[in-house]
Every structure is written in C-alpha cells, then in structure tokens.
C-alpha cells in the first residue's frame, strides 16, 4: 500500500518540483557569474593531485608511460610556463565563470553563449546558430571550437579543435584529437556542469566528470593575469626537456605509500573506475611507508 500511495502522489510531486525549479522544462538562461563549489574532489581541484595519482582515470598504456616520464620541471620551460588548462579541464579549477548570451539584434535569436573564465583570462564562445565546425586543417586553441544546443533545460555543447594539454595536471596527457561533450544544467541558483571527454590517443574509455557552481552576487573576482614567461633556470640548455627514462620515475610509489593504496590502483586505467576493481584490490598490497620514494632520481 505504501508503494501505491507513493506512486499516486508522484505526478503531483513532479509538478511541484518543476514549478519550484523555474524554467526546468524550457530553455534555461545561464547568464550570470558562477563560482565553483569545491566540496567535491577538493584535493585534486585546489591543492592539486599528487604525482602518480592516476586513480580512476581511464588512461591507456601510452598515457601511463607519458605521465610517468613527465617531470614537473618541464613546466619551468619558458614555452610551458603560460600553458592553459584546456576546455576539458579548466572548469575543475578555481575560477570565476561569467556567462552571457549574444543575440542577433534583428531577430533576438541567441547566436552564441559566451563564457569568460577568469583563470588564464580565457574567452570561450559556444555557437548556437548551427554553424559547422572548422576544417581539419584549422588551428587548435585551448578552448577549442564549440557548438551548442538546448535539450530541454540542458545546454549540450560539443567541442573540437582543442590543443594538446592534460587530463590531470600531474602529467596525464590529453591529445590534440580529443572531443568534448558538456551538459550545463541549471537548478535555480545552482549550476551542474558535466563533461565527457573522449581521447582516441590517451583514453581507453571516455572520462566523465562533474562539478557544481553557485550563482555569485558580484563579478569582481577576475584574474587579470597576462602571463609573462621568463628564464627560470639560468644556464639550462635551450634544447633541454626534463623527463624521466621509462621505468625510472622516482615517485612511482610515493602516493601509494602515503595513502596505503596498492601501486596498481594508483596507475589508473579503465578498470580502476569500476566497483569490481575492489575485488582485485583485496589481493594487492600497498608499498610499505618506509619505501616512499626519495626526492630526485634518474632523468
């Protein structure tokens, strides 16, 4: 009887939710300044991920070797100092996200939805007028080329032509062939952003992430930070690119030892995303704390 009563009430509940959610069944207006909430995945998003923490990222073997050979010193090279998070990653970090619509002055149709992302002063355009994506020969950018459409009250955005970057800022690479599908879902003064990244080069399965924002009262928190690169290591040969030889990353066990997780789990891969992996973990042991990686190592 209890089940029947609940079912009988459900249409009314649904209507009530719809009424309280504002434009839930029409095209929402995303305009405003949004601030991210960091209660989810905070260690990765604010202080940053540990080295060799690839947990739950569906990377393939090639990405793993890329990441393990990546030396953070590389970020000190002039050409990498001002490297921006790509559109597939930038929404995870500290930022102020300002969204507004651009309308055709004659028809008042929405031509584009603009994003200003305070981090690295990135401007992003989501074209809503049905234009095609550029040719395969066009240049790639950090934010890529985006087209959007409304699916009910969800803005779905498809992006191509994104530069090579990282799926996680501890060396996991993202190729210049990624495609990004996003869903922007407004719930009154709350915004959920879902991103689905496919990478034919470095991901074995799509990487799906979500993050949430709240509507801010002001838009004064921008980073006015035109990055200027400098020579951070005087005397370093111009052609030097810091990296580790395969198999010689000195930090492979550091994260695993710190949190007492088997190394096999920290190295990521699609199986680490699924609950069944917990069964495998029972047969694996974390490295002893005393064997945490020492600083330095072979390059």
């Amino acid at each position: 009887m209890k089940v029947v009563r609940t079912l009988a009430w459900s249409p009314l509940l649904l209507l009530a939710v719809a009424a309280l959610s504002g434009p839930a069944f029409g095209q929402a207006d995303l305009s405003g300044t949004w601030l991210p909430q960091f209660t989810e995945d905070q260690p990765e998003r604010i202080p940053g991920p540990d080295l060799v923490d690839y947990l739950g990222i569906p990377i393939n073997d090639a990405a793993r070797q890329w990441a393990l050979s990546w030396d953070p010193d590389r970020l000190g090279l002039q050409e990498h100092q001002c490297q921006v998070h790509t559109a597939a990653y930038i929404y995870r970090g500290p930022l102020q996200l300002r969204i507004w619509e651009e309308r055709d002055p004659q028809t008042q149709d929405v031509v584009a939805i603009r994003n200003y992302i305070s981090t690295y002063e990135q401007n992003r355009t989501i074209w809503m007028d049905g234009r095609p994506h550029p040719s395969d020969y066009a240049a790639h950018t950090w934010m890529g080329f985006s087209t959007g459409k409304w699916e009910g009250n969800i803005l779905t955005v498809y992006t191509t032509h994104i530069k090579q970057g990282w799926h996680r800022r501890n060396g996991i690479p993202s190729s210049d062939l990624i495609t990004l599908t996003e869903h922007f879902i407004r719930h009154d003064n709350h915004l959920t952003h879902v991103s689905i990244v496919t990478d034919p080069i470095y991901l074995a399965e799509p990487l799906i992430k979500s993050q949430d924002y709240v509507l801010a009262g002001n838009s004064g928190g921008n980073w006015l930070w035109p990055c200027e690169y400098v020579d951070e290591v005087p005397g370093r040969p111009h052609s030097s690119v810091p990296s580790y030889m395969p198999g010689q990353n000195p930090f492979v066990t550091e994260f695993a030892a710190k949190y007492q997780i088997p190394v096999e789990a920290t190295l990521g891969g699609p199986e680490t995303m699924y609950p069944e992996f917990q069964q495998k973990l029972k047969d694996l042991k974390p490295p002893p704390r005393s064997k945490a990686a020492q600083a330095g190592g072979n390059r």
Binding site: E79, A138, A139, Q164, S243
Partner: peptide, 14 residues
C-alpha cells in the same frame, strides 16, 4: 598537416 601555433610545435619539440 594542420595549421599550428607555438604550443603545437613545443609539444612536438618536446
């Protein structure tokens, strides 16, 4: 191949 800017060439150089 496609049109590039410095970052594309940096990754290739690396």
């Amino acid at each position: 191949g496609r049109l590039c800017d410095e970052h594309d060439l940096v990754e290739y150089r690396d």
